[in-house]
Design a protein around this nucleic acid. Sequence first.
DNA 1: ATTGGGGCCTCCG
DNA 2: TCGGAGGCCCCAA
Length: 111
Amino acid sequence: MNLSEYTYYLVRQIPKGRVSTYGAVAKALGDKNYARVVGLYMNRNPDANTMPCFKIVCSDGSLGGFGLGLPDKIRRLQNEGIQVRKGKIVDFDSVFFDGFQTMYPLKKRKS
DNA sequence: ATTGGGGCCTCCG
DNA sequence: TCGGAGGCCCCAA
């Protein structure tokens, strides 16, 4: 399993109605510096059916970006009952998910 | 609130 | 194949 596949695996762990952040995923990957790379993976694979990248937001609760356009991201979030006001997640602390199940710490590149 | 440095991958020429 | 530029960012100052 390569890095991008492992990233998708983690993102799919986010329960319905919850969100997580680029940084949280990066930390689950083993290094917070992966945050930007996580964003790239999201942008590269904007298929919301297999990879709910709309559930990944910035660590301060703001939305971040979205390859298909932010309005679409907001719509998808609200579909799961997540409220968005003024470009931020409402009650961010209570919907934030950081309970990723990491099989192994992926510190370095894996084949 | 704003700024800038960080350090890793992917993309495209 | 090689190299440089940039990214759906984060955090400490």
